[in-house]
Simulated assay, not measured.
Amino acid sequence: MLVRLMYASRAVAAIGDDELHAILRKSKADNPKHGITGVLCYSQGIFIQVLEGGRGAVNRLYNRIVADARHADVVLLSYDEIGERRFAGWSMGQVHMNRLNPALLLKYSETATLDPYAVSGKVSLALFEELVSTASVMGQS
C-alpha cells in the first residue's frame, strides 16, 4: 500500500548549502533501496518534505526524522493512502526557493514567508504542490 506523508520541522541550527546538499545526496542514495520518493523544501530554517512509498518504509523514515537531533518542532501535516505517486520521478528533489515568486506564498498565507505552522495541512499540501509546479525542482533522479 502506498502512502504520502508530509511534515514540517524547524532546523535546530542553520543549514548551509553544503549540509543541505549532503542531506539530498544521502536521500538519493538511500531512498530508492526502500522505494521512497519525494521532494524537500527548505527555507529560512524550515523544512517541508513530502515522502511517498510503502507504508512501513515511509513510517520508518519519518520516525528517524522525528528522532534526528537536527530537527525540532516536527509536525505531521498530512498522511494519506494513495493510488499513485505524484513525485515518482524524484528519489529526492529539492524545491529551488530562490526562484519562487513571493506572491505565491501570499496566495496561501498571511505573509510572503514559508510557515507551515500557520496554515492547515491541506493548505500546506496545496502550497507544496504549487511550489513544485512553479519553482524549479533540482535533483531529479
Results as ranks from 00 to 15, higher is better:
residue 53 G to N: 08
residue 80 D to C: 04
residue 89 G to W: 05
residue 39 V to T: 02
residue 14 A to Q: 11
residue 98 N to H: 14
residue 52 E to N: 00
residue 61 L to A: 01
residue 69 A to K: 13
residue 104 L to M: 14
residue 51 L to V: 03
residue 5 L to I: 04
residue 131 L to P: 07
residue 58 V to S: 05
residue 70 R to C: 05
residue 62 Y to C: 04
residue 14 A to H: 08
residue 109 S to G: 15
residue 52 E to M: 02
residue 106 L to R: 06
residue 42 Y to K: 02
residue 114 L to G: 07
residue 137 V to E: 08
residue 38 G to D: 00
residue 124 S to F: 08
residue 40 L to E: 08
residue 15 I to G: 06
residue 53 G to R: 00
residue 68 D to K: 06
residue 89 G to C: 06
residue 105 L to D: 14
residue 135 A to P: 02
residue 137 V to R: 01
residue 68 D to C: 03
residue 90 W to Y: 09
residue 46 I to A: 03
residue 75 V to D: 08
residue 39 V to F: 00
residue 131 L to S: 04
residue 25 R to Q: 11
residue 53 G to Y: 10
residue 20 L to E: 09
residue 113 T to H: 15
residue 28 K to R: 13
residue 56 G to Q: 07
residue 14 A to V: 13
residue 64 R to M: 14
residue 41 C to Y: 09
residue 3 V to H: 05
residue 46 I to N: 00
residue 133 S to L: 07
residue 75 V to A: 04
residue 127 L to C: 10
residue 114 L to R: 03
residue 121 G to Y: 11
residue 24 L to A: 11
residue 4 R to E: 01
residue 63 N to P: 08
residue 134 T to V: 04
residue 98 N to F: 11
residue 125 L to Q: 07
residue 113 T to V: 14
residue 119 V to K: 08
residue 119 V to E: 07
residue 52 E to G: 02
residue 30 D to C: 08
residue 85 R to W: 02
residue 15 I to F: 06
residue 74 V to W: 13
residue 28 K to V: 13
residue 22 A to G: 14
residue 82 I to R: 03
residue 4 R to G: 01
residue 57 A to F: 11
residue 101 N to L: 12
residue 59 N to P: 03
residue 47 F to I: 00
residue 118 A to N: 15
residue 1 M to W: 11
residue 70 R to K: 03
residue 8 A to G: 07
residue 117 Y to S: 06
residue 134 T to A: 01
residue 79 Y to A: 04
residue 96 H to T: 12
residue 119 V to R: 03
residue 5 L to R: 06
residue 123 V to L: 15
residue 57 A to C: 06
residue 62 Y to K: 12
residue 56 G to P: 13
residue 2 L to A: 07
residue 21 H to W: 09
residue 93 G to P: 07
residue 127 L to N: 08
residue 130 E to Y: 05
residue 28 K to P: 05
residue 43 S to M: 11
residue 92 M to I: 03
residue 94 Q to W: 12
residue 141 S to K: 04
